[in-house]
């Protein structure tokens, strides 16, 4: 029968479509796998050749003398990321709490889109303004060259603000109003309600926002290069210059060749592994909170 034939034909083409979609759907996974393979293929051999320990714990980065110690950059990346969180998280969470729970509706209706629009400002712009305003300010007030851990932390902290604020606002708003009403009905003040009811309920979303901000901070390159000074030494103070893993790659990639280039890929490997570990830990934390609830 013609009808049955048509259905059979449709079923056949549907299967074809399903298979092609499955192939497409694996594009992201394949890209991830290919990236991992390429970075490790380029970076691992030299790490093995000179010893993993020398790479991770070596303090001297002199590519021309075949000395590839990445410790200063590992410490540098972790330091500025921590600094960014110290600045960005309190300001970001406070803004999110204020805009959702304490300000009037019109203010938050206006400010949330403004903040989200600012999330799109490219990181180079943040770095440039840091160089023009923040670095001279630090130089005059605190001494040193101004190109420092402090400058990098502040710039990264500001850069991750929009991310943290907008995700936190979303997760605080997602807490049902009945929770707040229940708490207020029991005689709690607004702040007590926020602290003991709303924030714990929104916790997994807040953690997710902070993780995303952290990822952005540790992976940022251009903004950091512009304000961090980039000396490949472990910084002795907040005012000392610092070089991160990302800037190590970007600064030298243009002219590196041979083992030097491989060492930059090895830097990429270390960065890659650190980010995967941080993401894993953070996801674990978020999930645990969620389950406890």
């Amino acid at each position: 029968m013609a009808g049955g034939n048509m259905i059979a034909r449709h079923e056949g083409s549907d299967r074809l479509i399903k298979i092609s979609l499955l192939v497409v759907a694996f594009s992201a996974v394949s890209v991830l796998v290919i990236i991992t393979i390429f970075i490790f293929e380029q970076g691992l051999p030299i790490m093995m050749k000179y010893g993993l320990k020398n790479f991770l714990l070596g303090q001297n980065w002199f590519p021309s003398e075949k000395s590839f110690g990445l410790l200063p950059m590992i410490v540098g990346s972790l330091l500025v990321t921590l600094g960014a969180l110290v600045i960005g998280v309190p300001l970001g969470l406070a803004s999110a709490i204020f805009l959702t729970e304490f300000s009037n509706r019109r203010v938050s209706r206006f400010l949330k889109p403004v903040i989200e629009l600012l999330a799109g400002i490219p990181s180079v712009v943040y770095g440039f303004l840091g160089l023009m305003f923040l670095v001279p300010f630090i130089r005059e007030k605190f001494g040193g060259s101004g190109l420092s851990v402090l400058a990098a932390s502040i710039i990264l902290g500001i850069m991750i603000l929009p991310t943290i604020i907008s995700i936190s606002i979303d997760s605080i708003r997602a807490v049902p109003d009945s929770y707040r009403e229940g708490s207020i009905a029991l005689g709690a003040t607004r702040w007590q309600t926020v602290r003991m009811v709303v924030l714990p309920a929104a916790r997994s979303g807040l953690v997710a926002g902070i993780i995303l901000g952290m990822g952005r901070a540790i992976g940022e390159t251009m903004a950091v290069i512009m304000v961090a000074g980039n000396a490949a030494d472990i910084p002795g103070s907040l005012l000392a210059p610092v070089r991160t893993l990302t800037s190590n790659i970007a600064l030298e990639m243009a002219y590196a060749s041979g083992e030097h280039r491989e060492a930059l890929f090895a830097t990429g490997v270390v960065l890659f592994v650190i980010i995967m570990i941080l993401n894993f830990l953070a996801n674990l934390a978020a999930r645990k909170q969620y389950r406890k609830k």
Partner: peptide, 12 residues
């Protein structure tokens, strides 16, 4: 993939 920094994409 979303968590990989852009500089790694650049290297790749």
């Amino acid at each position: 993939l979303a968590g990989i920094p852009s500089i790694i994409f650049g290297l790749f």
